[in-house]
Design a protein around this nucleic acid. Structure first.
Length: 190
DNA sequence: CGTTTTTGACCCGCGC
DNA sequence: GCGCGGGTCAAAAACG
């Protein structure tokens, strides 16, 4: 396939907003992101995610067992943007290592790993079925090296983000700290 | 010809 | 214990 330039589609119409709390994540229509993270949504007015109870075929979020990632304390965060291309150019070099059809989702989810040796950062990309114009990008981990390509494109994205205080998440919660740190390091990445 | 993508198999946690 | 859903591996194909 050809390499598109990943540019921001409609700059003015999409005002990203961050939401957080575990709630926000377990409820999205496509069953996208696991619990306990931050999401950044490219929506203007509305509060993204975080609404009705179990949307999909059903697992009531049980607080009991945390998954691997949470135990390992690997920070994650996600944002969605309006884009015709799935993969945004964020300045890093990625290798795709998988693609999977997700249960109630119209579009497959793609898995990428950072090329740089020793860097364990991954990201997932999925287009929403509820709004085909929206692409959700989920990052896992923090790069321990500078960007390897141009960072203009991603700075464009970042400049549009608006960070909101977390909803229900207590500030003493460690995961909140981690998440904040991640966002911070993203905003100030090399 | 080296590198990346594709794609089904495999693996693993979790709920029933 | 088994099946399902989601994440990863790896061989082969595709790419430049």
């Amino acid at each position: 396939m050809e390499s598109h330039q990943a540019l921001l589609p409609s700059p003015s119409s999409s005002l990203p907003s961050i939401l957080s709390s575990s709630e926000a994540f377990s409820k999205d229509p496509d069953g996208l992101l696991p619990r306990k993270e931050l999401a950044v949504a490219a929506h203007a007015g509305e509060t993204p995610f975080r609404s009705h109870p179990e949307a999909s075929g059903g697992s009531p979020p049980s607080q009991k067992s945390e998954n691997k990632r949470e135990k390992k304390n690997i920070p994650r965060f996600a944002f969605q943007t309006r884009s015709v291309v799935d993969v945004l150019d964020d300045g890093y070099r990625w290798r795709k290592y998988g693609q999977k059809a997700v249960k109630n989702a119209k579009f497959p989810r793609s898995y990428f790993r950072c090329i740089h040796q020793g860097c364990i950062v991954k990201k997932q990309i999925q287009r929403l079925s509820t709004d085909e114009g929206l692409v959700v990008t989920t990052y896992e981990g923090v790069h321990n090296h500078p960007v390897e390509k141009s960072k203009e494109s991603f700075e464009n994205i970042l400049s549009q983000m608006q960070i909101y205080p977390s909803f229900g998440l207590p500030h003493k919660d460690s995961s909140y700290q981690t998440v904040s740190l991640t966002i911070f390091s993203m905003l100030n990445y090399f």
